[in-house]
Amino acid sequence: MTIPPPRTTAELPPDPSGGPSADRQAPQHGAATFYDPDRHPWPPNAAQVRLFVLALALLGLPLAWWAVSR
């Protein structure tokens, strides 16, 4: 049995680049959310994300040193 593949924007995972489809995938419904984007400086932008990843990598160095010390 073969059934039609999902036919909605909601079904398919969106474009990984977050680019072209991102805006079109913005939901049409204006229901309440758990946070108010105007009051919280969140989500972070691309630079902040990179900084976060870099900070984790740097944090790894002392942790790795500790982990192999007897």
Binding site: R7, T8, T9, A10, S17, P20, P27
Partner: peptide, 21 residues
């Protein structure tokens, strides 16, 4: 959430990507 609105969205031509990876 797969109403007609979503189907309409699918029919739209994709907008130009903001920046190429």
């Amino acid at each position: 959430g797969e109403g007609d609105t979503d189907m309409d969205a699918v029919q739209d031509p994709p907008p130009a990507p903001p920046g190429r990876p």
